[in-house]
Design a protein around this nucleic acid. Structure first.
Lengths: 334, 334
DNA sequence: TTGAAAGCGCTAACAC
DNA sequence: GTGTTAGCGCTTTCAA
């Protein structure tokens, strides 16, 4: 790679002038032309490391997510990316795999690499942002609160869980189980709370054994629903899946066993983008993942540009799309 | 962020010694202790930009993919990541969005950022690797050949397309349409060739109008299958989808119209990870995406470590999982 | 408007 | 084994 010195020499100017041309500082049109011409000839691209070292910051933002294979997070990533790109920033996607150590490692990389800021969907309750914050780098928490006083964009998870459950209740189901994620993940806990809210308010069912914690993954959904079906004592007539992958896993097992909605009620918190279900057999609370990413990116960019308002929290609402047919159709109409 | 000088001062050694401790060079245990202690106190992390500038390379590899929302590519990314991580490398994921300009931009970033190498699934036939290669950075092409003499990992796409089609023929279908991706994308073209191979070899059907090019996305699959169904003249009795998302789109529309396999035959090249289909109603040629990522990462790391063998090409085979029931069950058994 | 020069934080000769 | 020092390529005073 050519350097600024070679370009300067070829253009007959000083390195400083070359730098100015590439940074939009005032340079006579004549010299600017010469510089651009020389740069083109030499296929010059400014060295990132040098620029970063000198400026102590770089136009890259880190996006740390717990599961790169979950479409919910990739959709969110698209939102972040689209906004960042427009503002001239690149996004590096870091997959923490829900491991706190990997998360910490990426956090260190973000700092050591002088990245402009970080957007993080925390792996768990124990995310440590002390250093990044002490370092003065803007942070935005997405999807999950961070426990720190930073800008935050989350879903209204409790309401989402409640809406999903209520739709099943409206459709005539009564023994509604809830499968959710790890109990140290905020979204998992909140959505389960929403389920409990709806259940205790509307029906007189013993909830013991009807709440299952597993991983937020397809395999987790498969195991949880199998466990429910295999226990005659539990045997629910419907199930709420607290995220998209759990829902997919549950539906897979149900389909394999020939027990499909509306024979059993199914509601999912989150979208099912790659699913090929009959329309309207599953209740879905659509979560605006892309919008969450867009919002987070905008907030981060504002901070990077110097905004020092007190930390803001944006809460996004899911959109209920109830299944059309329940166990008891008359009840729905009533 | 603390610097090496501050650590050196606190530990009572020279900056060089601090550097040595952090790079595994020979240092007396006594001083090494002091340095580690000081570094811990100061929460020191070596500045990435400075190190990169000095060493002219960094332990980061760029992975450029055309669609971050496609599970096929994220599965591949996981493979790359797992291998890279073990070797102490970070992976930055760059989403070219199938746009050549974005791709070029990320390629420049990789060079300007002194990244150790790049793994690229080219956006189209027109990917320009001249500069990266001239710059001496290792490149591995995945999923799609690059037109350059570099290490390459691809699927046997033509065979995959043929196997998918043959499975439908075996099941008794005859007018089999093929929906594939853009005609400047190698995987799209090759898989369609496989379809044509099988069709011309086995049946006497006029193929005119039965091959549809669209985007490699859900929407593309939806449009293509709608077009097929809405044209009475074309009306196929089965369809091959040349990638996972196309398959999802097709199945969605078919399901919405109440026309599901085996009433119409469906075969998909690629896995359907988030799908909730009845088992064995759709023929799938499973593509080992993760393995492709793993292989590519291993090859890249070898190059980074100095391997100069002639460029190698690895071809991975898909695994046929035929649907269990076809239009004509006796034929299947025979 | 332009150039000279210092310095961002680190590593790797080189000398001791 | 350890310290001194030059310099990676850039940006940014400071003078002119």
């Amino acid at each position: 790679m050519a350097t600024i010195y070679e370009v300067a020499k070829l253009a007959g100017v000083s390195p400083a002038t070359v730098s100015r041309v590439f940074n939009g500082a005032a340079v006579s049109e004549e010299k600017a032309q010469a510089v651009r011409e020389a740069a083109r000839k030499l296929r010059f691209t400014p060295n990132r490391a040098a620029r970063t070292l000198r400026k102590q910051s770089t136009e890259v933002i880190a996006l740390i997510i717990p599961d790169i294979e979950n479409p919910y997070f990739t959709e969110m990533a698209r939102g972040v990316e689209d906004i960042a790109q427009k503002a001239g920033y690149s996004v590096v996607l870091c997959n923490s795999d829900a491991h706190t150590e990997k998360e910490n490692s990426y956090l260190r990389i973000a700092m050591a690499g002088s990245m402009a800021g970080v957007i993080i969907a925390a792996a768990s309750d124990h995310t440590d942002l002390d250093d990044v914050i002490a370092d003065g780098r803007p942070v935005v928490a997405v999807d999950r609160r961070s426990g720190y006083d930073v800008d935050t964009v989350v879903m209204d998870n409790r309401t989402a869980g409640r809406l999903a459950t209520e739709a099943l209740l409206d459709a005539g189901y009564r023994r509604i189980a809830c499968m959710t994620g790890p109990d140290n993940v905020e979204t998992a806990v909140e959505r389960a709370k929403g389920w409990r809210d709806a259940m205790t308010a509307r029906v007189d069912v013993d909830l013991t054994g009807l709440l299952l914690h597993s991983s937020f993954r397809v395999a987790g959904g498969r195991e949880a629903v199998a466990q429910l079906l295999d226990s005659p004592r539990l045997r629910p007539d419907a199930v709420v899946a607290a995220n998209n992958l759990l829902g997919v896993g549950a539906l897979q097992v149900l389909t394999e066993r020939g027990l499909t909605p509306p024979d059993i009620g199914v509601a999912v918190v989150g979208s099912l983008p790659f699913t090929t279900l009959t329309p309207d057999v599953v209740t879905v609370v659509r979560l605006p993942a892309r919008h969450m990413g867009v919002t987070a990116a905008r907030m981060l960019l504002e901070r990077i540009e110097g905004n020092t308002d007190p930390a803001r929290t944006v809460v996004l609402r899911g959109e209920l799309r109830p299944a059309r047919h329940g166990r008891d159709a008359t009840k729905v109409v009533s």
